[in-house]
Design a protein around this nucleic acid. Structure first.
Length: 801
RNA sequence: GCUGGUGUGGCGGAAUUGGCAGACGCCCGAGACUUAAAAUCUCGUUCAAGCAAUUGAGUACCGGUUCGAUCCCGGUCACCAGCACCA
């Protein structure tokens, strides 16, 4: 009788839900295990196969953990604020709340149909008042501690649509909607001072177990560099032109300086600069370029040499020319650099184009051809001459700078403060009030959540304002401090806000007194294992570590790092080997697979298709192979004998497979775990029968991967305890080996025959047997043995002449 | 450009303290069952030569170390990812 996957999957999903089999219990005596997967954005398109692969990994691990006796927390929720929902609402007129609820309902039913063992009593939705109340609460705490602040920035702005655009919506310098030229506009925006945590975020990486490439990406993102700040003089003034450099040792090679076009000092000395109109023209040209263009295009160096404005090297006293150029960014360092063309390729290119001197200060390269960034003996450098060690030269120079009072050691980060606002409706309102007398005043904690007001039209407001600016009843309020008339902040928080602390809310999702009960936070502690996509290992992962570290510093959470371990799954590509996308038409819908072949097949396939951490293309044919596997497993029911022990023939194979599957699951090697089960299944079919004990072990191992079919089989075997809660199979190392083994016999490194010997045979016995082997004699006849090796359990190698 | 990673059959991929390359699955071929097809089962399936036993070649390419190299070392090429004028 064939396996009716539809009826079986529905049946077991209902039983799991009714009995709350996968509920996590606060304060249970069992050891706890907290596994986290990245919660989905509930888009209208429904689930993607990528979600299935991402969730199936830890799904298997947590099902194994429960069988091993752990109290497992494996939650799911929805990261539901965001642009697609808002755009859909603008287009259709349906309220984002309604759209979100519909999409969440759809995702929930789809997730349940795959049979995931989530704790459905802990579902969270970042757009719910009970949730975003605490997102706002954390924001206010940050505001209190000076970590949330307002500052000017340049934004991409479309003067025709009057909206602020993201870099993605403004590529090529044109507005995506009306195609008019985009300008860079100065605007006051909210920032979170993540740079204050740069060193903590870097050091914290030592405490956690992240995959090496994930750790590296975080380090690069933070981008710490050490060097020195140096104050150059400005001829004819008391002004200091401050720069940052990682190579203070090359100070004697400075032949010019470059300032960012936006550098504020330029305006201050406008009257000194003889060619001001040239400066203004260049600035206008740069302002037109988006940040995207300015950094993406590697192009010819452009710039303007300032006339009448020169700098003075504070160590050598030499007068040097100053340029402005857009290869120097206002956002990094001090917005100005000392240029050492002999030892920096960018400065070299610039010097060649503008005819500036190039002075060698480090020997070793050929500066008539290109810059030499390497190490070597210092020359033309006064007190540094003759030094060969970079570190020493830098240290000597820094000391000199400090003695002269013209500079000091310094540290810089690539990471910038986090621009924390959007001019959009569907996000958490920023709970701040502007009062003419009191300035920025936080909304009192007991008035949280500051609710999103009901609205009809969610299109962005005019002049780059949020749609909320149009709602008078929301904007106009009284100052919580003095009671006078005041205005509310109308910007909302960015997408990343709600996901920066969601893992804490799962621990106590319904608490209305605190973001979570401290005792529960202590019980569940760190997330033991967090799996998600590579695309989130910089932004989301850093942002949430930052929030967590802040909450730790103010005593809200008990650990300094949120995640003990982080891994990432590889993408599922389309059948054509390219990333899935609607426009390519190569998207695979997981729901169709569930309907046609069953959830167990889908789960097995996404784990079997290849290395879990690497990208692999979807193959419709290979999915069928997994279907065959599941059906063959079901077929075992027709072969059961009542014995309650392993059969002699298969005992070692069973012990080996239990070991292999147990270890592979811990290591994200699901593909080889499943392959081992397939191999064992083939061996059973070769035998033609399976004992009850054997079958129970087999379905026990397969249960986390294919829970429905195995649960059904377990029931048919007459067992009343759910497989999901019965113990994980064990193995005995001593029983993993066969009595007799087959080894290869090589002559001069080439395999010539195979022999069967007792597993415990010693070298002499193995070599003696090997010399007799038929395939070997032909190659050793009439030769002398030079060397004879036996690698235990592997092979014999006979070296002859 | 920089940093990291990868390169194995027709395809997805196994195998590393240096020890039988190609596990497992897909595709493909042959056979069994069937009125037939599907499904299922059995066998074969790296390439080349041979009816065959077998022999030779083979883990991107070139070279080295070793009794023995997919694995270690040196060089070259290709692809992927992240960062990208970061001073």
């Amino acid at each position: 009788m064939g396996y009716d996957f539809k009826a079986s999957e529905e049946k077991w999903q209902r039983i799991w839900e009714d009995k709350k089999v996968f509920r996590a219990r606060d304060f249970d005596e069992k050891p706890k295990f907290y596994a986290l997967v990245e919660f989905p954005y509930p888009s209208g398109a429904g689930m993607h196969v990528g979600h299935i692969k991402a969730y199936s990994g830890l799904e298997v691990l947590t099902r194994k953990r429960r069988k091993e006796g752990y109290n497992v927390l494996f939650p799911i929720g929805f990261d539901a604020y965001g642009l697609p929902t808002e755009n859909y609402a603008i287009k259709t007129g349906i309220h984002p709340r309604k759209v979100t609820d519909m999409n969440i309902a759809k995702f929930t039913s789809q997730l349940k149909k795959v049979g995931y063992s989530f704790d459905w009593d802990r579902v969270i939705d970042t757009t719910e008042e009970g949730y975003y109340k605490w997102t706002q609460w954390i924001f206010l705490k940050m505001f209190e501690h000076g970590l949330a602040f307002r500052d000017k920035t340049l934004v991409n702005y479309c003067p025709s649509c009057k909206v602020v655009l993201s870099n993605e919506d403004s590529q090529g310098g044109k507005c995506d909607i009306c195609h008019s030229d985009i300008i860079q506009k100065s605007k006051d925006v909210w920032y979170l001072r993540i740079t204050a945590y740069a060193d903590k975020l870097l050091q914290g990486l030592d405490e956690v177990d992240f995959l090496p490439n994930i750790r590296l990406q975080q380090e690069n993102w933070i981008g710490r560099s050490t060097g020195a700040f140096v104050n150059f003089g400005v001829r004819g003034t008391d002004e200091k032109l401050r720069i940052y450099t990682t190579r203070p040792d090359t100070l004697f090679g400075v032949t010019f300086m470059v300032m960012a076009p936006e550098h504020p000092m330029l305006d201050k000395y406008k009257s000194m600069i003889g060619n001001w109109d040239e400066v203004e023209a260049y600035r206008a040209e740069c302002a037109k370029k988006t940040e995207f263009e300015r950094t993406q295009l590697v192009k010819d160096k452009t710039g303007v040499r300032l006339s009448g404005f020169t700098a003075v090297n504070p160590v050598s006293g030499k007068e040097i020319p100053v340029f402005i150029s857009d290869y120097v960014m206002m956002g990094y360092g001090t917005g100005a650099i000392m240029a050492v063309p002999a030892h920096d390729q960018r400065d070299y290119d610039f010097a060649k184009k503008f005819g500036v001197d190039i002075i060698e200060v480090i020997k070793g390269g050929d500066i008539s051809v290109e810059a030499y960034p390497g190490d070597g003996e210092m020359v033309n450098s006064d007190f540094l001459n003759g030094l060969t060690d970079k570190k020493t030269s830098i240290a000597v120079m820094c000391e000199k700078l400090e003695t002269l009072g013209v500079g000091e050691k310094g540290v810089q980060y690539k990471m910038k403060d986090w621009a924390f606002n959007r001019q959009r409706y569907w996000g958490e309102p920023i709970p701040i009030v502007y009062c003419d007398d009191c300035g920025m005043v936080p909304v009192p904690y007991d008035e949280l959540p500051l609710k999103l007001p009901p609205m009809e039209n969610f299109a962005p407001g005019s002049d780059g304002e949020s749609p909320l600016a149009k709602v008078e009843s929301f904007v106009n309020c009284t100052c919580p401090k003095c009671g006078k008339k005041a205005r509310r902040e109308t910007d909302t928080m960015p997408q990343w806000a709600g996901s920066s602390w969601y893992f804490l809310r799962y621990i106590d999702p319904h608490n209305d007194k605190a973001l979570a009960d401290p005792e529960k936070l202590k019980y569940w502690g760190q997330v033991d294992w967090y799996n998600g996509g590579m695309e989130h290992v910089t932004r989301h992962l850093i942002y949430s570590r930052f929030w967590h570290k802040f909450l730790y510093d103010i005593g809200v959470v008990p650990t300094s790092e949120p995640y003990k371990k982080r891994t990432a799954q590889g993408l599922i590509l389309g059948p054509d080997g390219v990333k899935m996308s609607k426009s390519r038409g190569n998207v695979v819908d997981p729901n169709e697979v569930v309907d046609e072949l069953g959830a167990d097949v889908l789960r097995t396939y996404v784990l079997f298709m290849g290395d879990y951490e690497k990208a692999a293309p979807w193959s419709k044919e290979s999915v069928r192979g997994c279907k065959r596997f599941i059906d063959r497993v079901w077929g075992l029911l027709d072969m059961v004998t009542p014995e309650t022990e392993y059969s002699k023939k298969l005992e070692a194979a069973f012990h080996r497979t239990v070991k292999k599957v147990s270890e592979d699951i811990e290591d994200l090697k699901y593909n080889t775990a499943i392959a081992a089960l397939m191999t064992l299944l083939n061996a059973i079919y070769d035998e033609g029968s399976v004992t009850k004990k054997e079958l129970e072990t087999f379905i026990g191992l397969l249960n986390p991967i294919a829970p429905h079919v195995t649960e059904e089989m377990n029931e048919r075997l007459g067992n009343t305890e759910l497989l999901a809660t019965s113990p994980w199979p064990t193995w005995d190392d001593a029983k993993c080996v066969e009595n007799e083994i087959e080894i290869a016999v090589q002559v001069n490194g080439k395999v010539r025959d195979k022999i069967v010997i007792p597993a415990d045979a010693d070298a002499d016995a193995a070599i003696a047997a090997a010399k007799e082997a038929k395939g070997v004699l032909a190659f050793t006849e009439g030769k002398t043995f030079v060397k004879e090796l036996y690698v235990k359990g592997r092979l014999v190698n006979l070296v002859v002449k």
